[in-house]
Design a protein around this nucleic acid. Structure first.
Lengths: 198, 198
DNA sequence: ACCTGAACACCGTTCAAGT
DNA sequence: ACCTGAACACCGTTCAAGT
């Protein structure tokens, strides 16, 4: 699992293969099937292993700060292990550790006085916001790292006619600045929490 | 492109292959390379083709309703073409049609009086919320359609100890109900818009 | 339980060749 | 411009066989 995780982060999930893991470990491809039923099973094991790293909810904070803490912690882990976002989006929901994270956030929301339905809806909203925001952030960052993709994006942005896309062209620098980062993540998170407070 | 899109929606993006498209068209795999430089190029073409289907912003509505219209339209298109969400999350940003959608939403936000930076941040927040919420919704729906995965989820939910995960167990029915649907999407969207109004 | 080795049915892409 | 056919370097997984 550690070797698999290393390979996924080094070369990206799209280039990850069981044969690659086996090669790295100096065994035949079939040796892995002693420990995992198939590739998806390995994916699920790694997702659970990573979700276990999401920190527990700190107990001595106002509940809005507890929510912020959990959401930021999940994002930080996804940034550290970009494959986690893809695994959450592509593999069926399962695993104790995912339940543990849900338990933490749901507990905070219930303790804050939200009714069962509102707590569940808010939990799903927060989780999907973190997933979407961080997925996009990772995507934009990987584009900036690939000089070829970065050049293509710049030229395609510059080729947009200011007549057809006046606002996009005018706000190009702001859009580039808001395509990731702590500030952007907190902006959206605070919008949700402000909506919740009202 | 139409054949490729059909195959992606019939069998899922993970099972999509250029050789499959070529086979469906009754040509050799290499015939496709006359029209697309490689597989990624075809992906980008399909993403652009789908983004062109996002409806334009209606002009005779209050701006919050305009925002709602665009976000709901994008979600509806992703639900109709589940591969779109995956393509947006996995392919570098590019294409005129993506700029068109951004232009529509950014124009509304600027006309509503938001400063350039706030407009950009709000646009990114809304877009990533739609992406995350709909990605998750698609994932949950596909799990419900696969009887095997659905059974595994039910049993893994029931095996959670009410002692270790009291809130998750208590809210299981609510969580199941809030894992998708128009109501859940609008709940999160309205949280964001309420935060924006405040 | 743990691993091998051969085999099967696939991939995306290159290259040289045709029309 | 458009397509073929062979080839290369890969995949995940099954099956039978070993220790």
């Amino acid at each position: 699992m550690r070797t698999a995780l290393d390979l996924m982060e080094a070369k990206g999930l799209h280039a990850f293969s069981l044969r690659g893991v086996a090669g790295e470990l100096g065994v035949g491809p079939m040796a892995l099937y002693t420990y995992f039923r198939n590739k998806d099973d390995l994916y699920d094991a790694i997702r659970d292993h990573l979700m276990a790293l999401v920190p527990d909810v700190p107990q001595d904070l106002p509940w809005l700060d507890q929510v912020r803490f959990v959401c930021r912690g999940l994002r930080a882990l996804m940034l550290q292990h970009p494959c986690l976002a893809q695994l959450l989006a592509s593999r069926p929901l399962s695993g104790k550790e995912t339940a543990r994270v849900a338990e933490g956030l749901l507990g905070v929301l219930r303790a804050a006085g939200l009714e069962p339905e509102a707590a569940a809806r808010t939990h799903t909203t927060l989780f999907t916001y973190v997933l979407g925001a961080t997925t996009w952030e990772i995507q934009m960052a990987s584009e900036r790292l690939d000089p070829d993709a970065w050049r293509r994006l710049r030229t395609s942005m510059e080729s947009l006619s200011a007549h057809e896309f006046p606002t996009v062209v005018e706000l190009a620098p702001e859009l580039a600045r808001t395509s990731g980062g702590d500030e952007q993540f907190d902006y959206g998170l605070d919008l949700l929490l402000a909506g919740l407070a009202s």
